[in-house]
């Protein structure tokens, strides 16, 4: 075990090209999917939290169900959609990074929506009542709500990124873990472990944890600037 850690440290310091390829694919996939989920989920979460309309409860139930979607089920769905018998086969996206991003956006967006909706449900009534008393137009009320939600938006982004970078089920099914192309850290850790190449698996594990820590620190710093 100790030797594996030594080898892992040496591997990280050596600048192994395959390792850098895995890191680059992971970064591209996690950043794109978490940002896309945020772009979709923030307006949806605010809308569901702030507005009352027929069918809102049903939408909340659907979203809460989607929050618990098993990644392999999501992976299976996208595999079927983009495989040789699926409706989107002509796009030839199976085993590419874009379809991995699509699958992750599908998994993460309900988490963003659900978390933001809970916060907005609590904060929207007093904001709306105050804004109505001041005669503010609806677009201004929406902007004020977004402004009130900046801090939770950062927290939700952290959650989305953590889910994206640590996800393995869906990305291995639709990405295939192809070396130099779709292999991300989680799928690579599985492959190296299966091959008995523990030093590389541990090296990736250390980098994964360090990246997660780095993103957490960065977001914490940004959150510090978003004062109440």
């Amino acid at each position: 075990m100790g030797k594996a850690f030594e080898q892992a440290a040496a591997l990280i310091l050596s600048g192994d090209r395959e390792l850098w390829s895995i890191l680059a694919v992971t970064a591209r996939m996690s950043l794109c999917s978490s940002l896309a989920a945020l772009a979709l989920g923030v307006p949806l979460g605010i809308w569901l939290g702030a507005c009352s309309f027929p069918g809102r409860r049903a939408l909340l139930v659907v979203n809460r169900t989607l929050m618990g979607t098993p990644p392999v089920v999501c992976g299976l769905l996208f595999y079927l959609l983009f495989s040789g018998v699926g409706p989107f086969r002509r796009l030839r996206l199976l085993f590419t990074v874009p379809v991995m991003i699509l699958a992750q956006v599908t998994l993460i967006t309900p988490l963003v929506v659900g978390n933001l909706e809970s916060y907005v449900t609590a904060v929207a009534p007093p904001v709306r009542e105050t804004a109505r008393g001041l005669g503010l137009p609806p677009w201004k009320v929406f902007l004020l709500l977004v402004n009130e939600c900046l801090y939770p938006i950062f927290s939700v982004y952290l959650l989305a990124f953590a889910r994206a970078i640590a996800e393995v089920g869906a990305v291995s099914m639709v990405g295939g873990g192809i070396a130099w192309k779709t292999n991300v850290m989680t799928t690579a850790i599985m492959q190296y472990t299966n091959r008995g190449d523990f030093s590389k698996a541990i090296a990736l594990g250390i980098i994964l944890m360090a990246l997660s820590l780095g993103v957490n620190l960065l977001v914490s710093l940004l959150q510090g600037g978003v004062r109440r």
Binding site: P126, T130, R132, G133, L136, K140, L144, N147, E148
Partner: peptide
Amino acid sequence: TVGYLPQRSFPFRMTVRQNLLVTG
């Protein structure tokens, strides 16, 4: 035209001056 100050008025996440200017 009606202006209304509710019992628990909400302080928007900005400075005091900006809270006044947000009304237009």
